[in-house]
């Protein structure tokens, strides 16, 4: 075995494990399985290796090797634009669009996860290298590397966990009424539906929710159009939307009550179950690009009371 194998190999293993722990192909099917997942695992191996070899390279006084980290950063920025491009390309094929903010969020997450993989590899290699130099036996320092590595993975997974709508708002079932052709939810007018047949479908099968922000931060975040688009997309994916391209009447639209900042949304689904809709809305992630925190400023706090 070569000289630094006991540093590099555990670092790569933990780095890849860290990437795997963040790679879940759930109901969103993004990254898509199997091709999308495999390309991300491969990239994970590359980034874990880059993190793992940095310390041994320095130990060998190969300072140029550190520039590889910069190269890696460049590479992962490309990952972000790649993801964005691919999602942008398939956007017109979605019945209910994800929206640019959601796409940006996904792309950002993929970039960040590669950095985390690299950092995990780096931390593990640092731990093993320095423990060994302090005279700790190889086996023991590798063990310590593994323990620290797992701690880092758990920490990173916690650190990147995103809030969901239920953290910033209450979601309640709401009622759909028609004032002439105007569809209203809890009194907030959403849109003008001309066709009587469509109105009937809304009255029979339509379900609606009201999203009530918990504080001013929630109001500002839910006001963001990208966040609302993400909620619409999520609800339509989870419940199955009853709509085709030639039926724009049934596009779910989340509108804001301008007086209170509450958001209301009506949707016609395959299974009209309002409890499921509430759950679907609650489980939508709060987009990083939509998040606003006016309460963190003095002016915002003062304006709120």
């Amino acid at each position: 075995m070569f000289e630094y194998a006991h540093i590099i190999i555990p670092s790569i293993i933990l780095g890849v494990f860290s990437r795997l722990s963040m790679l879940r192909s759930d109901y969103r099917q993004y990254p898509s399985y199997p091709q999308g997942v495999f390309s991300h695992i491969t990239l994970g191996i590359v980034s874990a290796s880059l993190g793992a070899v940095a310390v041994p390279a320095l130990a060998e006084k190969e300072f140029a090797a550190v520039t590889f980290l910069a190269l890696a950063a460049q590479q992962f920025r490309d990952v972000r634009s790649l993801e964005r491009q691919s999602l942008d390309n398939i956007e017109p094929t979605e019945l209910v669009a994800r929206g640019t903010a959601y796409i940006e969020d996904i792309a950002k997450a993929f970039e960040a996860r590669n950095y985390m993989t690299m950092l995990t590899g780096l931390v593990v290699s640092i731990v093993i290298y320095f423990l060994e130099r302090r005279g700790v036996s190889v086996n023991l320092s590798v063990l310590a590397g593994f323990i620290v590595g797992f701690a880092v993975i758990i920490y990173f997974n916690k650190a990147i966990r995103r809030e969901t709508v239920q953290d910033i708002a209450d979601v309640r079932p709401a009622t759909i009424t028609f004032e002439g052709p105007l569809l209203a939810i809890n009194g907030v007018v959403i849109m003008n539906i001309g066709l009587k047949a469509s109105r009937k479908i809304y009255q029979e099968n339509g379900i609606a929710v009201e999203i009530i922000p918990k504080n001013e931060n929630g109001i500002a975040t839910l006001g963001n159009l990208g966040q609302r688009q993400a909620i619409q997309h999520n609800a339509s994916i989870l419940l199955g939307i009853r709509k085709d391209v030639d039926e724009p009447d049934f596009t779910p639209i989340a509108r804001r009550d301008p007086h209170t900042g509450n958001v209301v949304m009506a949707i016609v689904t395959m299974e009209p179950d309002v409890e499921c809709l509430v759950q679907a809305v609650k489980s939508t992630i709060v987009l990083e690009s939509a998040k606003r925190k006016p309460l963190d400023s003095r002016v915002g706090r003062k304006a709120a009371d």
Partner: peptide, 15 residues
């Protein structure tokens, strides 16, 4: 007529 036109144009009918 509205229904037929909306299907052709993929537009939405407003009253």
């Amino acid at each position: 007529i509205s229904l037929l036109l909306s299907k052709i144009t993929l537009g939405m009918i407003h009253d």
